[in-house]
């Protein structure tokens, strides 16, 4: 077929932020399906809660302090996360590096706390269906925490190499975006795991 050039797009940028970029939508897609996974796990928890006369089954509720401490750190982490986001939009490499290091350290701290949380669940996965679903949900969220931490660490290292080119700032903003999802996902899970057994 004969081609007629009707427009020149040569002036367009080669990367963008947020809904303009492809990876942002990819992250959105994965958050949707992972969010669905969480929702279904919550559904399974509530189903087991509904069909059992006593809850938690043969155990005391989890100790509150590890989960609560996590909630506080998660919520506070939004501040450096957002500062990293703004620095990335300004393409301020020095501040992006600092921000990523801080976020990596926060991730490590949360992972340590998560270890304590498993230890203070006061049930094992093979005690009862209650123990099983609690371990599954906490494991699921821990997988997200570990994945995002891994991603953040690799990105931090990357930003200290010669590959720290302008388009990488867009990757940083996507990483920031995904962290918000990890934080948001934890809040209902915390309420479910730590407070529903106390109802």
């Amino acid at each position: 077929m004969r081609q007629t050039i009707v427009r020149n797009v040569g002036d367009l940028p080669t990367y963008g932020y947020g809904p303009q970029s492809g990876p942002w939508w990819g992250a959105m897609g994965f958050m949707a399906l992972e969010g669905m996974g969480f929702a279904l796990a919550i559904g399974a928890y509530l189903y087991l809660y509904a069909v059992n006369p006593s809850w938690p089954i043969g155990a005391t509720p989890p100790d509150l302090w590890p989960g609560t401490a996590e909630v506080i750190i998660y919520l506070l982490s939004i501040i450096p996360n957002e500062m990293t986001n703004r620095a990335a939009h300004r393409q301020d490499l020095a501040r992006v590096r600092t921000g990523l290091i801080v976020m990596s350290l926060i991730g490590i701290a949360l992972l340590v706390l998560r270890g304590f949380e498993f230890a203070h669940l006061n049930t094992r996965w093979d005690n009862s269906a209650y123990g099983s679903i609690v371990w599954l949900i906490l494991g699921l969220h821990t997988t997200h925490l570990v994945t995002d931490l891994g991603d953040t660490v690799v990105l931090t290292v990357l930003m200290f190499t010669r590959h720290a080119k302008p388009r990488r700032f867009s990757d940083v903003t996507d990483n920031v975006f995904y962290w918000n999802f990890v934080v948001l996902a934890w809040l209902p899970l915390y309420a479910l795991l730590d407070w529903v057994p106390r109802l």
Binding site: A44, Y47, L48, V51, I57, D126, N127
Partner: peptide, 13 residues
Amino acid sequence: VNTRFYDSSSGGH
């Protein structure tokens, strides 16, 4: 690993 999701004797269904 002996979780009990579907074991009706341990609260599963």
